[in-house]
């Protein structure tokens, strides 16, 4: 899923300064699963903003609404009747949400209420870790199912580097060295010799280096 973090309330309050009617817009997709932008968080943020407004003696109109997804136009369409009623729309979806809302409703003032941080998974309830960097060319099967692009601080294809110590990365003892894990895993699987292969420079054209990405599926397009 796409994992995000709530923006500090001070930052959000500064964004919506002077805007009377505010809508907090949640998303039932990834951000609901990582507990940062779903219906519950819409309620919490809207309530906190109303408290701030009441405290400052300002009009407390802060409503909440949660869309099925904010990354599909048909759900963004549900806003059509209400978008014009608000002076600010705070989207607490991933970075796609505020952009889709702003594209569909060009007159609306749209603000991001969360910071989109990474593509990852839950290690346990309340703990998430990065697992994918969407490089556009998945190779994890060569490394025992562990991704050296997303999980090595230097995205090394031929590791580990000299900074690997006691199984941890030199950037922090809290960060495991994924190359240490790869070697251990491959050894356990009896596939250590596969790591003798020297990988050439990775072609980053499939990643962000090739510019913004777009996919067209002719079989699905209507």
């Amino acid at each position: 899923m796409i994992v995000g973090d709530s923006k500090p309330l001070e930052e959000i309050l500064e964004m919506i300064k002077g805007r009377d009617k505010v809508l907090v817009l949640g998303c039932r997709g990834c951000v609901t699963v990582c507990n940062v932008g779903g219906e519950k968080e819409v309620g919490i943020l809207a309530t906190a903003l109303r408290i701030a407004r009441k405290k400052a003696g300002q009009p407390p109109t802060v409503d909440g609404m949660t869309l099925e997804r904010q990354c599909d136009p048909e759900y963004i369409e549900e806003l059509a009747e209400v978008a014009g009623d608000y002076d600010a729309i705070i989207s607490i979806a991933c970075g796609v949400g505020p952009q889709f809302v702003a594209e569909r409703y060009p007159e609306a003032a749209v603000f991001p209420g969360i910071n989109t941080t990474f593509i990852g998974g839950a290690l346990e309830h309340g703990v998430w870790a990065e697992r994918c960097q969407s490089c556009g060319n998945c190779l994890v099967h060569n490394f025992g199912g562990l991704c050296p692009i997303a999980r090595c601080s230097k995205s090394l294809m031929n590791g580990p580097c000299g900074g690997s110590a006691k199984g941890n990365c030199e950037i922090s003892p809290e960060v495991p060295c994924v190359w240490h894990q790869i070697v251990e895993k491959m050894e356990k699987m009896g596939r250590l010799q596969e790591l003798e292969k020297v990988w050439p420079n990775k072609n980053w054209l499939t990643s962000r280096d090739g510019g913004p990405r777009k996919r067209v599926r002719e079989d699905l397009k209507q």
């Binding site: 500090p8 309330l9 001070e10 906190a48 408290i51 701030a52």
Partner: peptide
């Protein structure tokens, strides 16, 4: 923490 951020 929320109250702190709201200046309460």
């Amino acid at each position: 923490k929320v109250l702190e951020q709201l200046g309460m």
